[in-house]
Write a protein that binds this DNA or RNA. Structure first.
Length: 267
DNA sequence: GTGTCATGCGTAT
DNA sequence: TACGCCTGACACG
């Protein structure tokens, strides 16, 4: 169940094993047989992520585009390779390593123009954080008359934030998720971008979403936090805020639950 | 075993 | 706003 950090981490770790290698590809489940046959035997040049999308570019110039959606999952296996699951959409392997993909929302072969078009649909990605991205984010979000809790889930405004980071980032800047983006001052929106950069990059490094400042739970290091101590707001409704002790609230925003602290993030 | 829920998103109404 | 897609983990009986 992936937000942007998962895909960037996948691109980095899978790249170590497959970049520059001639790979075999198959679709045990059968729903990607045509694409797998097309890419089978090609050399994988690079793996690249933007937001929640990942692109595998091959020497023909074509790319495998994957979006995991809510259910997609990767597994990496070493020899002896286990039997692939019946739901395995893509199996890609060399002699040393095998990548197993099940349940992706999107899985297709794109030509270079289609890759550019797919990338263009996405807003700036905090993990990439190119020069100008921060200003571009502020520009895109500040003109929207929609709640911040909806705006930061819009991948054309900022790419990579999902439901966990939504609640955690708005907690960190102390802003209620129902505040309209257009009514939020640019300085605060800039802080929101800065927190996104820090938190998503941390998530990419560690492979887990941990937003809590250890001080708030009496620990010394983030790595010492238990599973239940890692987040401030997400799925903590009814519990006490780790920072101010007030109640954590929840409500549906855009069909997904959002969580916030009644004290730290007043309406 | 069955039912529910989940870190997502596109399309139809 | 509702539904369809896609899988797996967990709670419950």
């Amino acid at each position: 169940m992936p937000e942007g950090h998962v895909l960037h981490r996948a691109a980095r770790l899978q790249g170590k094993r497959f970049n520059g290698k001639e790979v075999s590809m198959a679709s045990p489940q059968g729903r990607f047989s045509e694409g797998a046959a097309q890419l089978d035997g090609q050399t994988l040049e690079t793996i690249h992520a933007k937001g929640k999308h990942i692109f595998y570019r091959f020497d023909s110039g074509d790319s495998l585009h994957v979006h995991l959606g809510l259910f997609g999952k990767y597994r990496i296996n070493k020899p002896p390779f286990p039997e692939p699951s019946p739901n395995c959409r893509v199996l890609m392997w060399t002699d040393e390593c095998e990548l197993h993909l099940a349940g992706p929302n999107q899985c297709r072969v794109l030509d270079p123009d289609e890759v550019v078009a797919a990338l263009d649909r996405l807003g700036p990605d905090p993990i990439v954080n190119d020069p100008g991205d921060r200003d571009e984010f502020i520009k895109r979000i500040h003109k929207r008359k929609i709640p911040l809790g909806r705006a930061i889930m819009d991948q054309s405004i900022v790419a990579g934030i999902g439901n966990v980071y939504r609640s955690e980032l708005l907690f960190q800047i102390g802003v209620n998720p129902f505040r309209l983006a257009a009514d939020t001052d640019p300085e605060t929106l800039g802080q929101l971008w800065d927190h996104s950069v820090v938190e998503l990059k941390a998530g990419e490094r560690v492979g887990k979403i941990i937003t809590v400042d250890p001080i708030d739970v009496g620990a010394e290091k983030r790595s010492q936090l238990t599973r239940g101590e890692r987040l401030y707001a997400y799925k903590r409704d009814g519990k006490d805020c780790r920072r101010c002790g007030d109640f954590i609230m929840s409500a549906d925003i855009d069909g997904r639950n959002a969580w916030w602290c009644a004290g730290c993030q007043p309406a």
